[in-house]
């Protein structure tokens, strides 16, 4: 297939974003979406938390996507996050062997979510983090943020993003260690302790 550069830079105007609305629940979530780590992998971590609105109420209808590198810092290239059964059309779940690096989870009725994935290793000049994309009813354009793991303070201090944030804002991007490879990361969409959200340019 020939690739033709038809336009030059920025020749196509973007399709506007819209909210995910309230009714994505029978379409986007998939079985095992939150269980990204291969079964029994020794380098697994669990990250969990709540998503809150501007009045501190948890959102029962938010959807998070998590995307991160493997423990060697490589970009995962395996597909199969949402492996399907060709007979029934249903979701088979991941194969428990390959690491796709991608997870999708909706908050439960209490606004709580979790993912189990592999511990990301640093890439480039950044400290280790998981990329996150937040969707919700009421949110007209998704929001990007990052989950930094707290274990190495020196590495965090030299991270190009964290190092240019005020301390209180920076802390919203660093998960809290709860021991046994479990971390807490709450997302506040608005108001006190508002999470730092990112714009890629």
């Amino acid at each position: 297939m020939t690739t033709t550069d038809t336009g030059g830079p920025q020749s196509a105007l973007p399709t506007p974003s819209h909210t995910v609305g309230p009714f994505y629940g029978h379409a986007l979530p998939f079985r095992g979406g939150e269980d990204i780590a291969p079964l029994g992998h020794p380098d697994s971590v669990t990250v969990h938390g709540y998503v809150y609105d501007g009045e501190g109420r948890p959102l029962p209808d938010a959807l998070l996507e998590v995307w991160g590198p493997d423990p060697e810092g490589r970009v995962p290239t395996a597909d199969g996050s949402m492996r399907r059964d060709p007979a029934s059309g249903g979701f088979l779940g991941r194969n428990g062997v390959e690491f796709t690096g991608f997870g999708r989870v909706q908050t439960d009725a209490d606004g709580h979510w979790y993912v189990r994935t592999l511990r990301p290793r640093a890439r480039g000049r950044s400290a280790p983090y998981l990329g996150v994309c937040v969707f919700a009813r009421g949110l007209l354009v998704h929001l990007f943020t990052r989950i930094y793991l707290p274990d190495d303070g020196t590495v965090l201090a030299s991270d190009p993003l964290l190092s240019r944030l005020a301390a209180d804002r920076r802390d919203t991007l660093v998960a809290g260690a709860e021991g046994e490879g479990t971390y807490r990361f709450d997302i506040r969409l608005q108001g006190e302790g508002e999470t730092v959200f990112l714009e890629f340019q």
């Binding site: 909210t19 501007g54 009813r137 009421g138 944030l165 969409l189 608005q190 999470t195 959200f197």
Partner: peptide, 16 residues
Amino acid sequence: YRSSVLRHPRQPLVAI
């Protein structure tokens, strides 16, 4: 769109 009122950040996004 009223559902947006409590669900949007007030702080500017941080550019990367």
